[in-house]
Simulated scan of single mutants.
Amino acid sequence: MSKLIVRLQDVVIKQGDQEVLGGVNLRVNEGEFTYLIGKTGSGKSSLLKALYGALPLVQGQGEVAGFDLNQLNRNTIPLLRRKLGIVFQDFNLLNDRSVYNNLLFTLKATGWSKRQEIQARIDEVLQQVGLAGQGPKMPHQLSGGEQQRVVIARALLNTPALIIADEPTGNLDPETSDEILLLMRHLSKQNNAAVLFATHDYRILENFPARIIRCLNGKIFDDQEISL
């Protein structure tokens, strides 16, 4: 039986004083790839922020990767985030250091200390994203698609139970977008990691179907439940 990675029940999410989403019920299983769609301002990013502890739940119950979202505090939020891989539209790479040192920075920040284990893990994730041997390069020497592959490699470092991807192809051309999407679907299977992939690129949804969660009018809808 699949393990539940995300469980939200009757959740309300606010940005400041404004309710963005209400009555949210969501379940995502281990290894499941799910699109999250909706217009700009529909609450996609707010939902994702709630999952990684950047926005509190105003009401309802939530659990992500074994962490109770209602019990999060300054000490437990970093522990939750070690169970997650987060990929943004903007690459957020450290431009003053190499690909290898970008990944090294993340590993050291999350408690890795043994040089051989660090080297092996960095080599492994770069291999997984198709960038074997690219560790010495600086971010500016890479294409946009390659930089996003580095970001995905960074997200994989701590073997996440859930990868949260917030418009990861938003700055990429269609061909590169398809490559990044297919890579993430492959990695989801290979690592048995759940993926929530927020996008407004409906071309991707048509070409590469998967489960769809839709943000609309302050609610979320699972297309599996409303399709005929």
Rank of each mutant, 00 (worst) to 15 (best):
A161T: 03
A161N: 01
L21Y: 10
G60L: 06
R82I: 10
L216S: 14
E63C: 10
L157W: 03
A155V: 06
T106K: 05
T40S: 15
S227I: 15
L126F: 05
D222A: 09
N92R: 15
F197V: 06
P136L: 07
L156S: 00
E124P: 06
F88Y: 05
Q190A: 14
N217T: 09
L93E: 00
Y100M: 09
I204S: 04
L48C: 14
L183W: 02
Q89K: 10
R74S: 15
K39W: 11
D166L: 03
H186R: 13
G60F: 06
V11K: 04
V125L: 09
L162N: 03
N102D: 03
Q141T: 10
R154V: 00
K14A: 11
L181F: 11
Q128H: 14
E117F: 07
K83G: 02
G53W: 02
A120W: 07
R7D: 15
Q61A: 12
D68T: 11
Q224T: 11
L172K: 05
V151K: 00
S188L: 02
E175L: 07
N70G: 15
G16C: 07
R97I: 15
I152A: 00
W112H: 10
E206G: 15
N102L: 01
Q15D: 12
G130L: 02
Q190H: 08
L55V: 12
L103Y: 00
S98A: 03
A153N: 03
E117Y: 13
E63D: 13
L47D: 01
D173I: 00
L93A: 07
K44Y: 11
G66T: 10
Y202A: 04
V195G: 04
I77W: 08
P209Q: 12
E146D: 03
T199G: 05
L107P: 01
V64D: 01
L205P: 05
L182A: 06
L183P: 00
V28K: 00
H186N: 08
F91Y: 06
Q9Y: 08
S113P: 05
S188Y: 00
L107I: 10
L205V: 11
L93R: 03
E175K: 11
Q59H: 14
D96W: 13
G135Y: 08
V129A: 01
N95K: 13
L181E: 03
Q134K: 12
A132L: 08
P136G: 12
I212Y: 10
A198H: 02
F197C: 06
T40A: 11
L84Y: 02
G144A: 04
H140L: 09
D90K: 05
I212P: 06
D17W: 09
L142R: 08
R154P: 00
T199I: 11
N191C: 01
R154E: 03
L107S: 05
D17S: 15
N25E: 13
D173S: 07
G16K: 09
S45Y: 04
Q190T: 10
A120I: 13
Q9R: 14
K219L: 14
E63Y: 09
G22H: 09
Y52P: 00
E179A: 04
I86S: 01
Y100R: 15
V11S: 07
N73D: 13
V99Q: 06
N75E: 15
Q71V: 06
R74L: 08
L107Y: 05
D178E: 07
P168D: 14
Y52F: 15
N95Y: 11
D222H: 10
Q134P: 00
N73G: 04
A194N: 03
